[in-house]
Simulated scan of single mutants.
Amino acid sequence: MPSGLVALLDDVAVIARTAAASVDDIAVAAGRAGSKAAGVVIDDAAVTPSYVTGLSPARELPIIWKITKGSLKNKLLILLPGALLLSEFLPSAIIWLLMLGGGFLAYEGAEKVIEKLGGKKHGATLEDTITDPVEFEKQRTSGAIRTDLILSGEIMAITLNEVAAEDFLTRAGVLALVGFVITVVVYGAVALIVKMDDVGLAMTKRDSSIAQRIGHGLVAAMPGLLTALSIIGTVAMLWVGGGILLHGTHELGWHLLYDIAHGAQYAVEGALGSLGGFMGWLTYAALSALVALIVGGIIAFVLHNILRFGEEKGAEVTH
C-alpha cells in the first residue's frame, strides 16, 4: 500500500474535517475509499508517463494537461453521475462492474507480460517511426484518456463499493473528492516524472558542484525510473485485477479461489511471527497476481488468436 498516497488522502480528510461536520463525514469516507483504490492509482501513475515520453519536451506538459482535463471529465462528468444512478437504482450491478474492470486489468497486465516474454506486440509502439508528430500526439493523448476512463471507472467503482451504505449526498461528495484528489495526485506525479530529466539537465548548468552532481544523477536515473514504472504498473495491474476477481467471485458465491488465497495468507501470517503481516499480505497479492495472469492470458489468447482483436490496430499506441 503506497503510504504517500494514503498519507495525502489522510491530510485531505484532516483539512476537510476543519471545514464542517458534513464535509468531515465525506472526507473520512473518501480517505477510506481512496486507500482501497490505491493499487489502481499506482497503475495509473506508472502507465501514463509512457504516453508522453518520446515526444518533444516542449509538448510534454501540454499533453499531460490535456490528459488531466480528460481524466477530470471522465470522473466528474461521465463516471460520477453514472455511479450515483447505479448505486441508487441498481446497486447489485456494482460487483459486476468491478469484475469487468478486474478482467480488463488482468488482460492488460498479462498482455504486457506476454509481450516481454517475446509474444507478438499489438498496436503501435514507441519504437515505431513517427511520420506525423501532430497526429501521433493526438493518438497518444486519446489513448491515454481512454485508458484513464477504464482505470477511473475502476477507482470509482471501488470507491462506490466502500461507501454504498452512505446516504446519496455523502456518496456524491466522496466520489467527487476521491476523483478530484486522485487526478491531481496522479497527473502531478506524472508531470514531475516526465520533467525530471529536464530539471536535471538545467541543474547540470548551475555553478554549484552539488547542483551539478544532483542534476547528473537525475538525468542518469531517468531511464531506470521509466523501466521501474513500467514494471510497477504491470505488477499493479495484475495484483489489483486479481484481487478484484478473487473478491468478486467470493461475493457472487464462488468461494474456492478466495478461500485458497486467504488460507495461504493466514498460514504464512501464523508461521512467520513479526514478519507475518507483511509476508501474508505479499502472499495474497502474489496469488492474486497469478490468478490475474492466468485469466488475463486466457482473455488475451481469445481476443488475439480467435477473435483477432487488435491485429489491425496500428493507430493505437501500446503503453
Rank of each mutant, 00 (worst) to 15 (best):
G4N: 09
G4S: 13
L5Q: 07
L5I: 15
L5S: 09
D11T: 13
A13P: 04
V14G: 03
A19P: 05
S22T: 12
S22G: 15
D24C: 09
I26S: 04
A29D: 06
G31R: 09
R32F: 10
A33I: 05
K36P: 12
K36H: 14
A38V: 15
V41Y: 05
D43P: 01
D44E: 14
A46E: 04
V47W: 03
V47H: 00
G54P: 10
L55K: 13
P57L: 02
R59Y: 11
E60N: 02
P62I: 08
W65L: 13
I67E: 04
S71C: 15
S71N: 11
S71T: 15
K73M: 14
N74H: 04
I78Y: 09
G82T: 06
G82K: 02
S87W: 07
L90I: 10
P91H: 12
A93G: 08
A93N: 06
W96E: 03
L100V: 15
G103R: 03
F104I: 06
F104G: 00
L105P: 06
L105N: 00
G109N: 00
E111I: 10
V113Y: 05
I114M: 11
T129C: 07
I130D: 04
T131F: 13
F136M: 10
L149E: 04
I150V: 15
L151H: 08
L151N: 07
S152D: 09
G153T: 02
A157Y: 04
V163Q: 02
E166R: 15
T170Y: 01
T170A: 01
V178T: 06
V181N: 01
G188R: 01
A189Y: 14
A191I: 04
L192A: 10
D198E: 14
V199G: 07
L201Y: 15
A202M: 09
K205A: 14
K205C: 04
S208P: 00
I210N: 12
I214T: 11
H216W: 09
A220I: 13
A221M: 08
M222W: 08
L226M: 11
A228N: 06
A236C: 05
L238E: 06
L238H: 01
V240Q: 07
I244S: 01
L245K: 08
L246D: 02
L246A: 08
H247W: 11
G248K: 03
T249F: 14
H250G: 07
H250C: 10
E251Y: 12
L252H: 08
G253Y: 09
L257V: 12
Y258N: 09
G263K: 06
A264W: 01
A267E: 10
A271T: 11
S274A: 12
G276Y: 05
G276F: 09
G277A: 10
M279P: 00
W281T: 11
L282I: 11
T283W: 02
A292V: 06
A292L: 11
L293W: 07
I299S: 03
V302H: 03
H304F: 05
N305V: 07
R308F: 15
E311K: 13
E312K: 15
E316A: 12
V317H: 09
H319V: 10
